[in-house]
Each structure stands twice: as C-alpha cells, then as structure tokens.
Write a protein that binds this DNA or RNA. Structure first.
Lengths: 298, 298
DNA sequence: TTATTTGATGATCTGAGATCATGGAGGAGA
DNA sequence: TCTCCTCCATGATCTCAGATCATCAAATAA
C-alpha cells in the first residue's frame, strides 16, 4: 500500500498533526495552506479514511488519524536520527560486532588500547550472540566463530578454538586435586559449569567428554549453567567449579594463574574466531587501522 | 537535516540497495534507470557522502551507505505496517489501555463479554503501568487511576479506591484468626504481601497503617513483595499471607469467599479507576458501545 | 459589528523529477 | 578476440503532481 502513496505526504500530515492548523503547517513547510489542505485530502482519499474531522475552522484527529500520526512522527524522528552521521564535522565512527564472550574476554581491552592511540576515531562495539546480527554488513568489522570461510567477509584467524577444562587454584586446593595427573573420569565427577550455546556448532561439556579417546562412562550433568560464556568463566574464577575454557579467550587468566588447566586432554574443534573485513567494499582508514591493531600481537 | 531531503528519495535509495542495480530498481518503481541514477546522485550531494562506490558497472555500498540502507528499510517497513489498518475490508478495531491490575482483575472478563456480543469489532487491550502510555491519545478508551480530572480525557468513575486487608479462608483458619474482631495491631504482625507502585499516589501497606486513626507501633515489614498487584492477590488467594486489596478490583473474590476482609478498617484514598473517552474527538460506534458496556452493571 | 483567521475549492502555474538518446565500461558468449 | 548485451552517467528536453492564486464560507477575536 505504501508504494501508492508519496512519502512527502507524511511530512505534510505530520506537520498538520503537530500544529492542528493547516495554515501554520504550511508556513512551517514553506508551502501554502491550500497545498496542505490538498495533500491531506489526497492522503485521506488514498487511505480510504478520514484522518481529521472538520467543524468550521476547528480540526480534530480521528482515532485512526491519531494512531497514524504517532507512527508517522516516530518514523520521521527515526529517519532524522538516521541522518546524524551525515552531519558535517563529526569524527569517524567504526562499528565492530562480536559475541558476548569475545567482547568481554578478548576484545574490550584491545579496543581500549586502540582508543588510546586513535583519539579521532570512535568505536562502536555491537555485542550480540545472534548469528545474523554478528555477520551483518552494517558493521565495518566483525569477529565470527567460523571454520574460516564466509561469503561476504574476508576472514583472518585470530585464535583457534581449543577447549579444555579449567578451574581456579582455590577450587583445586579445596578438592585436593592434582591438576596435571587428573583423569577425565575424575573431572566428570566434579562440579561442572556449562553455558548456553547460541551457535549450533558450539561444543557443550557433554560433547567435549564424548569426543575424548576414552570417554567417561559417567553421565555428564553440569551443576551450574549460565546464559553466557563470560558468566561461566566468572563462576569458575570464583571457585564454583570446572568450566570448559576456550584457550584463546582465557589466555590471560591461564598466564596469571587465576585459572588452571585440569588434565592433559584438549579438543581442537576445527572452529575458531576470525576477524572479518567486508569482501565487496573497502575499509575506511580508521577501520583499516583497527583491523591492523587487532591482528598485531598474534 | 531531514527537512531538506525529499522523502521519496529514500524509497528510490531503498530499491537501489535491495537490488544493487539501478536498472532493476527503476523497473520496480516504474521509473527509468536514469531517474534512479539522478536521485541517488542528488541524495549523495545532499548528505555530503558517497553511499555507493562504482567500479565500472558494479555497485557496492559504502559503510555509511550500508547503515543508512538498513535504517531506511526499517523505516519503510514500519510505515508500511502502519498502514495495515487502512487496508480495505478490515473489521473495526478498538484500542483500550489499562494497568496490569485492572486488566487482569476487572477488565479482561468484561472484554470477553463485550466480544461475545460484538463479533464484528476487535478489541486491542494495551496493558501497561506506564502513566504516559496509559493516557496516550492513540487509544480509543483508557482506564485511569485518578481523582477524576484529566486534561485530555472525559472521565467516568468505575470504582472508588477503598483499600482493605484481605486473606484467604485457609490462611485465616491456619492462624486461628477472628476476621471480624481482629485489630490492626494483630494484622501488622501477620505475613504481609505488598507490590510495586508505579504511580506515586498508590498507597503501600506501610502507608495504609500510618493513616489509621490509631496506627500500630510495630514496624511494618512485608514478607513478600510482587512486581504486580495481580501477583500479590494471587499469593493471598493461595494462602501465602495478607495483602491490601482494592475493593472494586477484588469484588468477585470477596463475593465468592475466596478472599475475606480482615478487621473493619478501610481507607478511602480519594482516588479511583475511571473510564476515559477522548475530550476532543468523538468515539467510533464500536468504541461507544464498549464504553457503554463497561459502565453497565455498576 | 467588524476584522481576522482558518479550511475548501476552481482555475491556473511551475520546476523537481522524469524521459530520451547516447556514450563509456565491463561481462558473457561464440 | 570479437560481438552483443547490460549497466551507469549525463546533456538536452519534457511534464504533471504539486504548488499558487483568488475567492468563499464559517468561526473566532477584538
């Protein structure tokens, strides 16, 4: 239905509704009162409904008119806001998307470093676990959990996914564990911490055990489950149990000793995190610098 | 900035982005490829930014172009959806707004009765506790918690707010209470159930006690607190404790004996629930019928 | 009562947006 | 490699949706 209505009519309608006065609406829009009257009349014809009631020179909106007015106003405000980035003189803004875990455990501190060295560039981090939002071409850069192939993004590996059970030193002491010699069977009997998987390819604790050379016979039942990977890691850091860590995301915690690997079994999944730049368009200078920054130190 | 850009340009831009082909965009919009080219060029001039990069006959969106495209698409979809009510042949739809408690305890069953007698009218109940949404003129009718005065709504009283402590018969038996003779001091020592107040004028349990002729000296500390009034009433019905009931909203429960009044103290707050019709526009036939229906039986 | 303002409308005007024709560039197919 | 086709850009020209002008009737303000 919208294709048969000139969009400009909604601007006229909006002004008419805001002022409840066609003459003032016309002055606001720099057209005559007669033009406003025509446009409103034409819009009512096209919609098949009266939007205003007229009593002499008094206007009132019909219920449908009122509802449409609110939506039209919201539309114009949204569109006006959408043009903000085109106002002259603003600094460059880069948009990068990453999942919650990557954002929290890996990316945020690197963006901080980038920020310090690039004061004229603003960075907008979109943190989401929705695959479609992650890969949206509205972003300048993305970090995707992938095998390395993507139709619309050129991907560069950041870190392979290597999954290993980890726990805090406190938890290890409390349960008198030998972190080096501990067997998968022993790990399976501990308090396990899992998290939601938004990507069908993500490996749960149960699947991790299942893929071992000699899987434990015990039923794997995690005691705690969190909505995000970062929350699960936080719980492990607190000493609440054993979680499954992705080596690249918890590198700092392993290096500092805040988390310790349990046993010697690691699983390479064939997946990993990749930094993506758009395949069919070039990067802005600031986005190119961020891309370079994130790849350095690997 | 939007006032200097013809809105129709966004429709052309949207089509160009969807097809990434000015010729096809033109065919879709029933204009020539040259017209599309001109409109895009003019839009880029007005925004001061390239939206597309051209390499030979290949188009690609710039990052800003991509972001704008998403917003323009969202805008047009929203506007298209806003016109749904104007499509021919639909039945009449009435919109009524009421708070959660009124919706749940009073209004829902009355709308059901109205529905049964008016099959050609659809009713849309907006349940919200936000005062601005409640009083929005986008609604055909509203039920407002008020003293009876409002600038934009003509209010008719539905029920006065009379607050009284109530509990279930089970709870009363279990605590060997005398519901008639029980004193406020004794009530204050029971398990009290309270709920969130979205309106500054709502009376909490503590305030109810404070306004008694001889307020109890004990500190009022409700054991349970719920996010909605209806949840609090449900808890009282289950026998979880004593809640503060508004007599009009729990009339059915009092009549059936599912809830019983404790003591003889009641507080009239000067507020009440009122049915509002718009002050400055007339009701549709269906809305007028619903208005009449809600006032009947009082 | 008079003056002013507002919305509606018949008659007429007009310029933003459209088309036409053409050129250059790139891709597909033979 | 050549030919044909499709696409985007652009100079010249056209056109009709949207605008104005002038006027009337009705309502409000002074």
């Amino acid at each position: 239905m919208l294709d048969r209505i000139p969009l400009e009519a909604f601007r006229v309608y909006d002004a008419a509704c805001r002022f409840m006065n066609f003459s003032r609406a016309g002055r606001e829009l720099h057209i005559t009162q007669a033009a406003v009257s025509r446009r409103i009349q034409r819009l009512e014809e096209q919609l098949g409904t009266k939007l205003f009631t007229r009593r002499g020179r008094n206007l009132a909106l019909t219920p449908q008119g009122e509802r449409l007015a609110q939506r039209v106003r919201a539309t114009l405000e949204y569109l006006e806001e959408s043009l903000e980035p085109f106002r002259g003189g603003g600094s460059e803004t880069i948009s990068i998307a990453a999942s919650g875990s990557v954002s929290h455990l890996w990316l945020a501190k690197r963006l901080k470093d980038f920020d310090n060295g690039n004061p004229s560039v603003s960075v907008r981090l979109l943190t989401t676990d929705a695959p479609s939002e992650l890969a949206s071409e509205a972003n300048d850069l993305v970090i995707l959990y992938s095998t390395g192939e993507h139709l619309r993004w050129n991907l560069t590996p950041l870190m392979k996914e290597v999954l290993l059970p980890v726990a805090s030193p406190d938890f290890i002491d409390k349960h008198r564990l030998d972190p080096v010699a501990i067997s998968p069977d022993e790990i399976a009997r501990l308090d396990l911490i899992d998290y939601e998987r938004f990507n069908a390819h993500w490996i749960s604790f149960r699947q991790w055990f299942a893929r071992l050379p000699t899987p434990p016979k015990a039923r794997i039942t995690p005691r705690l489950s969190f909505s995000t990977y970062a929350l699960a890691v936080d719980a492990a850091l607190r000493g609440d149990g054993v979680t499954l860590g992705s080596i690249g995301l918890i590198a700092d915690q392993l290096a500092s000793g805040a988390l310790m690997e349990l046993g010697s079994q690691r699983l390479e999944t064939g997946y990993g995190y990749h930094l993506g730049m758009p395949r069919y368009r070039s990067l802005t200078p600031g986005a190119a610098r961020l891309h370079q920054h994130l790849l350095s130190g690997l």
